[in-house]
């Protein structure tokens, strides 16, 4: 059985956010929810400053605290290592959000894609309402609806339940890579099977010194980060007093 994981090469990542945008399109993710997000940080004091960018997503932890705490097994592990959520069983207690150390689980506070339900037009007789736009292009709730998402999960999650990244399990089932991996123009995301010693991710994990987020908590995340981007150079020095 496979044990899927991801390597993110921070030297290759340009911070373009195409992972986030493609994820939103692929999974019909609503406004304000980011299955694929980021942590940014500015270090140093002006003028000696640097900007750091770490792309984030569900870590699909081996010992996932969200899974352990979920009272109805709505949050559960698949045999292939993916941490999956079943909205049909979710009671909306948000205990998974409390337990997740990475802040990657979101709750649908209101009806998703509220904007596209709006039947009001901006200019009467001139423009279409968002709801009409959706109907015209044959979308389901949103114009850019992706029906393929329905294969393993509700196409659009309802109000009152949580949602998060699934490593695009519906694509994996078809032998495709997760959408964010496919869409990355810099090939900064590398996906594969940890149980396959010949997999690209195992080669990279072995070649570089990877780190995982908040490893001290013992959750054993399935997202590994390697290298760090820096175009800066400096003259060789021993400092001084």
């Amino acid at each position: 059985m496979s044990r899927y994981a991801m390597v993110i090469d921070l030297q290759r990542c340009t911070g373009c956010s195409s992972c986030s945008i493609s994820c939103k399109n692929e999974n019909n993710v609503s406004d304000g929810i980011y299955w694929s997000g980021k942590i940014t940080e500015t270090s140093g004091t002006f003028p000696n400053v640097r900007f750091h960018y770490i792309p984030t997503l569900c870590n699909h932890c081996e010992d996932a605290p969200c899974v352990r705490g979920c009272p109805t097994r709505a949050m559960h592990k698949l045999d292939n290592g993916i941490t999956m959520h079943n909205p049909k069983k979710c009671i909306g207690c948000r205990y998974c959000m409390i337990n997740c150390p990475y802040g990657v689980i979101y709750f649908n506070w209101s009806n998703p894609h509220e904007f596209w339900r709006d039947k009001r037009v901006l200019i009467k007789g001139g423009t279409s309402s968002p709801a009409e736009e959706t109907r015209k292009v044959g979308g389901k709730e949103i114009p850019y609806y992706n029906p393929e998402r329905e294969a393993t999960l509700s196409g659009i999650r309802a109000k009152g339940v949580v949602e998060k990244c699934t490593f695009c399990d519906h694509r994996i089932k078809k032998g495709k890579l997760p959408r964010c991996v496919d869409a990355c123009p810099a090939d900064a995301r590398i996906f594969g099977d940890l149980d396959d010693p010949k997999s690209q991710i195992n080669k990279l994990i072995g070649k570089f010194r990877p780190f995982r987020l908040k490893e001290s908590l013992g959750t054993k995340p399935g997202v590994f980060y390697i290298r760090d981007f820096s175009s800066a150079a400096y003259p060789r020095t021993k400092g001084g007093i």
Partner: peptide, 12 residues
Amino acid sequence: LGSPLKVIYLML
């Protein structure tokens, strides 16, 4: 609770 009617899954 976001979806209190689903508490049946506590048993199921």
